[in-house]
Design a protein around this nucleic acid. Structure first.
Lengths: 135, 135
DNA sequence: CTTCGGTCCGTACCTAAGTACGGAGTCAAG
DNA sequence: CTTGACTCCGTACTTAGGTACGGACCGAAG
């Protein structure tokens, strides 16, 4: 596992992570991302792990985690003490599983809709709501 | 299936749906919720189906759907033409499945972390990022 | 050693999704 | 028929998550 030294400028870094430079700065202000020290000069350099981190933030966000929650997830990676991490991770695991259940329900209903629709049964009054109704 | 007539005032309705009154009005402005006509008087009445609808919106939101996307999902229920519905639903189905994949990945990593942590292997440098790294 | 794109930083602005406010109207109970 | 709680409506404010702006500075290329 070669951990190459930080070598990317913000511009390159941001592009690699698929966000814009301002977002990087924003995440730094929020404490989601370190501000690398700037050896030899006043310009900061970033590494691949930073890119991965930002990509992770974006993925988690798409799944409905707020930046604050993402910060919680990232804390595990950042070496919180084992006990705290376990408790927090267990909690998050519950959350995630609840989300999975909900999503699976939606998936089932959508799949069914598409299916019925394909079978051309005239007016399909799709019961998406009904399906979710069961909480 | 008894569809009782609208009989709830906004206040009761909002409480039943677990949101506040202003949110109801907001959803109406956004077209996510009908504004019931007000038979006999100037006060609006809502029914159980409205409650279900709002609850659905809230569920979908928790899963990372924006109100706009939720509106899209609800359009199926509201009887769009079959062809359009099928196309849109198919698209949504892809989205949902992508979300499911991501969530499952996170679930796996979290479960693994909790597990390892329970086994007390000292400092766990949890590779949440690495796991998500594979997109 | 100039030059010109990139960085740095503070501050201002933007959209989504609500929340709050205040005045006017309503309606059921006393 | 008055009161007090609730509704209605427009408008303004708030929070999260960014985006945009503009002046000063840096640093590699010519």
């Amino acid at each position: 596992m070669k951990t190459q030294p930080p070598s990317l400028t913000v511009g390159v870094f941001a592009a690699a992570a698929g966000v814009n430079v301002e977002t990087i700065r924003f995440y730094q202000r929020k404490g989601l991302l370190r501000e690398p020290g700037r050896a030899y000069g006043t310009i900061r350099r970033y590494g691949e792990s930073d890119v991965a981190r930002v990509k992770f933030v974006k993925s988690a966000q798409r799944l409905g985690f707020s930046l604050e929650e993402v910060a919680g997830l990232l804390a595990f990676e950042d070496g919180t003490r084992c006990d705290e991490a376990r408790v927090a991770a267990t909690q998050k695991l519950h959350d995630v599983r609840a989300k999975l259940d909900d999503l699976r329900r939606i998936e089932a209903v959508l799949a069914q809709l598409v299916d019925r629709c394909r079978a051309r049964r005239g007016a399909i009054t799709c019961p998406i709501i009904a399906a979710l109704h069961a909480h």
